[in-house]
Design a protein around this nucleic acid. Structure first.
Length: 428
RNA sequence: GGAGAGGUGGCAGAGUGGUUGAAUGCGGCGGUCUCGAAAACCGUUAUACCCGUAAGGGUAUCGAGAGUUCGAAUCUCUCCCUCUCCGCCA
């Protein structure tokens, strides 16, 4: 959510920002409502002031045994006027909220303006020696993760579908162990060498939390919803972890605060038919370790760079080839001001797969969620800047991990760094 | 699922329908005292919005909403949430 004052004072800038993200522009309507709102407030507060003053006088007169019928009659009219103005004000404010909740965050000046993924900018890539399709020819035919998973009996997409429907994976044997090892490895790396505090959040949250991080109202169709309780399955641990401090005022000395946690992630992926859907490429439930930061405004972009490096560290430790993209405005999500995607290499698909998305939201989420901080015990509360990034999602990572480490005889070598977590060196 | 209790400031906890934005205590901040600290004492300590260059002024907020009233933290109704006990259960 943007500050209404900022919109009022820089309408052209906001108009550009909305256009850059290809969202609907309802600014004229909004500005008219805003003007109406302030006019009503001026009127109604004057009336309320008279009411308060005269009510005091009535109390005084009654105390002194005087008659106050004239004042009481007068105030009856005032109260009626207040009631009708208040009703109109509420209606106007509702309309304002309806519009502002759909205004996207403005992108940072360093974000290239563009329409689609084609205009994203690769900022760097990290590729170890001998990667098939990138800096070497394949020495043998590269199997994809589905084939590998089936042959080694570690991934069973057919039975996952039987259990829950398409888009639900079933890990078996060493595949299940590898998944668990990966999660533990990533969390340990972040909490021991990157300074994060571990969190284990609920996987189901209320509507207020979803509104706080921006999933609601816009993304309602993409989420699993429990009707009876009006609760939502989280699409990412960003939601519960960012909302930990919703409607709170943090101490400035606590910033920047870095949290990280694992969660299962649930996404309906409504309307994604026809996109890459096989195997792990697009699933309704996957595992992810999420990093979340709360920062003072002046350091948030430094924190974003660190966040990306923290995610990259995971991939380098696992020897997985990747590239980092700076997303163009049109590909940057609704709530984000600047986003880097990290894509891992899939020899089986001969393509890059998005495995992480690291974003700075500036105060966009903080405004919605009411997350503030005080620089000093006496200073005014200010909104924090929030950031988050996957560190990382295991499903796409698993694709790359299996495919990049396959051997000519169809086994998979476990990366060195993971072995103390898996307890085995090879899947065969 | 059954029965009960309760939601007031950072926390604890008062509050006959009329200077109650709200007593008191704790905590926080500033100060006095001290070589320094503790203790004690004094002072101070909510947020949002509107008008205003500012100084300042105004309005709202005691879980949420509606009602009664000239006037509601206080009375009525509805809803939400939390807690306790019983039942069930990983």
């Amino acid at each position: 959510m943007l500050d209404i004052k900022r919109i009022r004072e820089n309408p052209d800038q906001i108009r550009h920002g909305i256009a850059n993200k290809h969202e609907k522009d309802r600014l004229d309507e909004l500005l008219a409502l805003d003007a109406r709102r302030r006019a009503i407030i001026g009127d109604v507060e004057t009336l309320k002031n008279t009411r308060n003053v005269v009510s005091q006088q009535i109390a005084q007169r009654k105390k002194g045994g005087e008659n106050a019928d004239a004042q009481i009659a007068e105030m009856k009219g005032v109260s009626d006027a207040v009631a009708s103005l208040d009703a109109e004000l509420r209606a106007v404010e509702e309309q304002i909220a309806d519009i502002t909740l759909y205004i996207p965050n403005m992108t940072h000046p360093s974000v290239p303006v563009g329409h689609s993924a084609a205009e994203n900018v690769e900022v760097r890539r990290w590729v170890p020696e001998g990667v098939a399709g990138l800096n070497a020819d394949a020495a043998f035919p590269q199997l994809d993760h589905i084939e590998l998973g089936k042959r080694l009996d570690v991934l069973d997409f057919e039975r996952g579908t039987k259990l829950s429907g398409s888009g639900f994976a079933l890990y078996m044997g060493k595949g299940a162990t590898l998944e668990r090892a990966l999660i533990n490895f990533m969390i340990d790396l972040h909490i021991t060498t990157h300074g994060y505090t571990e969190v284990f959040p609920p996987f189901v949250v209320n509507a207020a939390s979803m509104r706080g991080t921006g999933q609601l109202p816009k993304m309602a169709e993409d989420m699993y919803h429990c009707e009876d309780e009006d609760l939502y399955l989280i699409p990412t641990a960003e939601v519960p972890i960012t909302n930990i401090y919703r409607d709170e005022i943090m101490q400035g000395s606590a910033l920047p605060l870095s949290l990280c946690g694992y969660s299962a992630c649930f996404r309906r992926e409504a309307g994604s038919y026809g996109k890459q859907t096989k195997g792990f490429l697009r699933v309704h439930q996957f595992n992810k370790v999420e990093m979340v930061k709360f920062s003072a405004p002046e350091t948030s972009y430094d924190e974003l760079e660190k966040l990306v490096r923290d995610a990259e560290d995971v991939l380098q430790a696992l020897n997985i080839p990747y590239r980092v993209l700076l997303l163009c405005s049109g590909d940057t999500s609704f709530a984000s001001a600047k986003t880097y995607d990290i894509e891992v290499w899939s020899p089986g698909e001969n393509a890059w797969l998005e495995a992480s998305s690291c974003s700075c939201f500036e105060d966009f989420q903080a405004r919605r969620a009411g997350i503030r901080f005080r620089r000093d015990p006496h200073s005014k509360p200010e909104f924090v800047h929030t950031l988050n990034g996957s560190g990382l999602a295991t499903s796409r990572l698993m694709v790359s991990l299996l495919e990049c480490n396959q051997t000519v005889d169809g086994k998979i070598m476990v990366p060195e760094a993971l072995r103390r977590y898996t307890g085995f060196d090879v899947i065969d």
